[in-house]
């Protein structure tokens, strides 16, 4: 169970149960859809970007605890950041889950998002944690094409 508690930490369980920034923004000007065909997770993110800053962000969709909590924490992390900062966070987050590095400086920049560091031990679940980030990355590029984790 120790390993499992690494994965299902209280913060993840909490954001799964009560996702923040859930729903559709009324005045969004960028959006993107994400899909994970392996587990059927579907996600849509809505952004209001003004002067290069993410003024507001929300998401809708259904998925597993890891993907829901990741989407919720992603919105908290990205809100208020510049587009460049948001992209940099995406890169660091992606790196934390997919590379065997102990890059402390990267992780310290991630703040609460380090709660997902345990996911890299579960290769089948990495896509669950990164779906929201791939999706927001696409929205920041104002991509119209739905993104897939495949």
């Amino acid at each position: 169970m120790d390993d499992l508690q690494d994965l299902y930490q209280q913060l993840i369980l909490d954001h799964n149960k009560s996702p923040r920034n859930l729903g559709k923004l009324e005045d969004y000007n960028r959006q993107a859809q994400g899909y994970n065909p392996l587990c059927g997770d579907k996600l849509q993110v809505f952004l209001h970007v003004e002067d290069g800053i993410v003024k507001d962000i929300s998401f809708e969709g259904s998925g597993c605890a890891i993907s829901t909590a990741s989407a919720s924490l992603m919105t908290q992390s990205v809100k208020g950041k510049t587009v460049e900062q948001a992209r940099a966070t995406f890169e660091s987050f992606h790196q934390m889950l997919t590379e065997d590095s102990d890059n402390e400086s990267d992780e310290s920049a991630l703040g609460k998002l380090v709660v997902f560091s345990g996911v890299c031990k579960y290769p089948a679940r990495v896509k669950c944690a990164t779906l929201a980030w791939h999706t927001v990355n696409a929205a920041l590029s104002d991509s119209v094409k739905p993104v897939s984790t495949e």
Binding site: L4, L38, C39, G40, C64, A65, Y122, C128
Partner: peptide, 22 residues
């Protein structure tokens, strides 16, 4: 209240191989 994918991971940790998905 629990997504099948989460169930699959927790069961796997307990030695149980079970299919979750469509």
């Amino acid at each position: 209240g629990v997504h099948p994918h989460d169930v699959g991971t927790i069961l796997d940790q307990q030695g149980i191989a079970i299919r979750t998905g469509h």
